[in-house]
Nucleic acid binder design. Structure first.
Length: 586
RNA sequence: GCCCCGAUAGCUCAGCUGGAUAGAGCGUCCCCCUCCUAAGGGGAAGGCCAGAGGUUCGAAUCCUCUUCGGGGCGCCA
């Protein structure tokens, strides 16, 4: 309807232009909005006020010109000028009622559209280092990314969901070494555990598996392990030097093959856990992209060579630097260190180069807000490579700060004292977690009150929405118990019986649903849908309280049943898009 | 020091990208089940939209500055 009105106005403007009543070169930006107040009709347009000044007439005069030039339309009863020059459109009742049948016939597909026209979008999200279980901070990125992906798919984009696995680098070496040290402890070697190693229990579990697989074949005496290792921080040394020396010692004593086995056991165990965790959270991927594969396939080398060829790389103090300042970054960045190792940034350049080569129309990265400083250099690299950096959008998700008993929960992966996503799901349930995470705009800091989310009381908006859905299902169960048939066809013929204000409001909301899905998808703002569903549930509950559905008059009964059945369908479709279940009873 | 995000009811947040009288939930107070789930509904109170300028027919929304929060700025990953 919105689009139809816009078309009508566009026609009006062009006919006024050809008749010379509007200057031919004037620019129009036609915005149709839904009115907040029913007394202003159903839709409003501010075009007349925007044209008033350039045309040199008062807004109400312009509005009258536009209305006179407006082609007639079967579904519009009346067009008024109101206030300072708004043009208000009144939609016919028949048109308003028709939405109910639309929903009932379209079912699961109501709200879907094809605005994306099959364009390929790649969405990379979570991509947490596989050095430990996902924590609640990752949960927000997971819920947000998955929902944006589903929304984009709902409006017709071809979405490719991807997880970038950081299976290379120092953090992973620390993990491998942590596993080995725990393994030594299991083998009664009294080796001190570094303060900078991964402290979590899961490291012990992996070490147990290692012991089961290799018996004591990977054991080395304490003296060999600790010989000449610089002191750890608690002993007055440097924790970084301490762990790095241990990593080297681990590699030397085990040899390449055995080291890789320990490393891969840690990596795969944790990755499997992450995969399972996300799956249970309703988050699935099309691809798990390995960072190590970049080097293996020569992509990093290729990326750096391309940058060199384009003359954006120079050598300084033994390292290779990328001239990102040529593209607006604050300082140049190292891509290959003086020890010959490429930096993480070099991997990222290669990864993004590869994304571009895979032919996506659009590439979206969902990152934690702490990585915001990283955006300019990645975009700079893409520009330097000659790619279209505008194809890349980085969505920054702010941290979720947890509160327990009114106090901030401190989180640290290293110390092992964090709340995992799995714990959160077990405490509050997947539905509530998914919903809570996307209830806020992603750039909004979020206070996640664990106690509140845990409490299974009416305070939880997700229960409120699910309850509305279950309530409707319950009505139909009652109907069946009373042996009354719901005649959809007859209800559809008697929709004009739906004259109560509650009913009209419900219909308007249902009509809005496709617009909400569209806006939520195109703006990457799932919270719009979350809020819409809350409002829709509220209208349903209000209606439920004010009127009986199972009444003696079968015309009214069937019409009302059609309306609540359509409402149920919209609630169900919306919840599904948010990754939340729609229970039939509660 | 530089950069990003935020500031709206007592609390947690919306506000459709500049529109008509700024909205929800929670909390507080009052009311509603002989009736399809009271896990619900209705009503009341509660606001200098952080502050000051600017842009225009019109600003919570856009721009600048100030104040106050949160986060980030490595040859770490």
């Amino acid at each position: 309807m919105k689009h139809e009105i816009k078309t009508l106005l566009t026609q009006a403007v062009s006919s006024l232009k050809t008749r010379g009543e509007l200057p031919a070169d004037i620019e129009t930006n036609i915005q149709i909005t839904r009115t907040r107040d029913a007394s202003h009709g159903d839709f409003a347009c501010n075009l007349a006020m925007m044209l008033a000044k350039p045309v040199g007439k008062n807004p109400r005069e312009v509005a009258q010109l536009l209305i006179d030039a407006l082609p007639s339309h079967g579904h519009i009863d009346r067009v008024d000028i109101a206030g300072p020059g708004f043009i208000n459109f009144y939609v016919s009742q028949a048109s308003a009622l028709s939405v109910i049948n639309d929903v009932l016939t379209q079912g699961d597909t109501y709200g879907l559209s094809n605005i994306g026209a099959g364009r390929k979008v790649q969405l990379e999200f979570v991509s947490a280092n596989p050095t430990g279980p996902l924590h609640v901070g990752h949960g927000r990125g997971a819920a947000y990314g998955a929902t944006v992906a589903d929304l984009l798919e709902a409006v017709g984009f071809n979405v490719h969901r991807e997880y970038y696995v950081n299976d290379a680098g120092r953090q992973m070496d620390i993990l491998g070494t942590s596993v080995w040290l725990r393994y030594l402890q299991l083998c009664d070697i009294d080796v001190p555990f570094p303060s900078n190693a991964y402290q979590g229990d899961y490291v012990n579990d992996i070490a147990s598996t290692l012991l089961a697989q290799h018996d004591k074949n990977l054991v080395h005496p304490l003296t060999a392990v600790m010989d000449n290792i610089p002191a750890d921080e608690p002993q007055g040394g440097d924790k970084e030097q301490h762990i790095d020396a241990l990593i080297q010692r681990c590699k030397t004593l085990l040899g390449d093959d055995s080291y890789l086995q320990v490393f891969d056991l840690g990596l795969n165990t944790i990755l499997d856990d992450i995969r399972q965790d996300l799956k249970e959270f309703g988050v699935v991927y099309d691809e798990w992209f390995s960072e190590r594969s970049l080097a293996r396939n020569g992509l990093i080398k290729q990326a750096i060579e391309r940058l060199q060829k384009a003359n954006y790389v120079y050598e300084k103090e033994g390292a290779l630097w990328f001239k990102s300042t040529d593209f607006g970054d604050e300082k140049d960045r190292v891509v290959v260190r003086d020890n010959g190792q490429h930096t993480y940034f070099a991997s990222d350049i290669a990864y993004h180069m590869d994304k571009m080569e895979r032919g996506f129309d659009r590439v979206i990265d969902v990152w934690g807000a702490d990585h915001h400083g990283y955006v300019p250099r990645v975009k700079a690299a893409l520009k330097a490579l000659g790619d279209d950096a505008d194809k890349l959008d980085v969505l920054l998700v702010q941290f979720a700060v947890l509160y327990r008993n009114g106090e901030k929960v401190q989180m640290s992966t290293r110390s092992g004292s964090f709340v995992t996503l799995r714990e959160l799901r077990e405490e509050v349930g997947t539905d509530a977690a998914r919903f809570f995470y996307v209830m806020r705009k992603c750039e909004q800091h979020m206070d996640f009150d664990l106690d509140l989310a845990k409490s299974k009381s009416s305070e939880n908006p997700i229960y409120y929405i699910q309850y509305a859905h279950a309530r409707i299902c319950s009505v139909f169960r009652q109907l069946a118990e009373k042996n009354i048939q719901h005649d959809i066809g007859s209800g559809n013929n008697k929709l004009e019986k739906l004259t109560e204000s509650h009913e009209t409001e419900l219909m308007v909301s249902i009509t809005k649903y496709p617009e909400i899905v569209e806006a939520a998808a195109l703006n990457e703002e799932p919270h719009l849908l979350a809020h819409f569903l809350r409002d829709l549930a509220n209208e349903l509950h209000t209606y439920y309280n004010a009127h009986q559905f199972i009444v003696d008059d079968e015309n009214i009964r069937n019409a009302r049943l059609n309306l609540i059945s359509a409402t149920r369908q919209v609630l169900c479709n919306g919840l599904k898009l948010l990754g939340v279940s729609a229970p039939e009873s509660m």
